[in-house]
Design a protein around this nucleic acid. Structure first.
Lengths: 137, 137
DNA sequence: TATGAAAGACTAACTAA
DNA sequence: TTAGTTAGTCTTTCATA
């Protein structure tokens, strides 16, 4: 992870479809080098995946979840990530154990997700924050 | 946003470099249709950007920030998003006003970011959660 | 939806550090 | 031995009918 890798990453973060030739021009190297670097970044797990940032719904929110102490938090995370509105699930330190980031059609749908989470025996409590605005780095 | 769009999106979320021809095969349509659909999804803002999910550092965390009632929260968000370890900044409802998701080299660096945030006059308090594990949808 | 042209990515052989 | 370059080939995308 040297300066060249960082430059390539920052271009890809903003637009992952930028051609290798253009990246090469912008960072002052050859197409082949960029390709090799990207390949290594993928192999080393620094690039986890090529993806699309989407906003399929109208309401994004963070649902913070406390799970029972006797329960495998990872297993609960695995269930949540299967729900189609759920973008990501984090196990976190702090008052709650899990944070899920969801992107739903409307607040009613958010409410359904919260209800669904609270219906699980493993879930002790939830706390929801609406995401009012998002900036991407 | 019909079922076909949703299928295309779910393929792109997992691998945004999947060729249109392959997507077409998998969803049972033509390459041209997939291309037009993706183009429309971008135009309609449903696909916000093509990007890479990265883990450049070893420690991810969420830094929750309360800002002074008299200041423009968006302006503070704009400052945070410029910091290179910051992946995203959300304005949220709830006890705090902003949540920034950061991906740093180590906990020491996280601590520097927290300190830097707290040094701003606009910032009243911060609360940090380490992200111990992440699942992507 | 089919097809050809253009753009981009990949292979492999080569060079330099 | 590893990283970078380059020319030739193959694949994907794009525009047209």
């Amino acid at each position: 992870m040297d300066e060249l890798d960082r430059q390539i990453l920052s271009i890809l973060r903003r637009d992952a479809r930028t051609p290798y030739t253009e990246i090469a021009d912008r960072v002052g190297t050859s197409e082949g080098t960029v390709r090799n670097r990207v390949e290594s970044l993928v192999e080393d797990g620094i690039i986890e995946r090529f993806t699309v940032a989407t906003s399929t719904g109208n309401v994004k929110s963070m649902i913070e979840v406390s799970v029972d102490v006797n329960v495998d938090t990872g297993a609960v995370a695995d269930r949540f990530i299967e729900w189609k509105e759920v973008d990501s699930v984090w196990q976190v330190s702090g008052d709650e154990d899990l944070v899920m980031v969801v992107d739903a059609a409307d607040t009613e749908r958010i409410n359904e997700l919260i209800t669904r989470a609270r219906e699980l025996d493993e879930v002790v409590s939830t706390k929801t924050r609406l995401i009012l605005d998002e900036r991407l780095g």
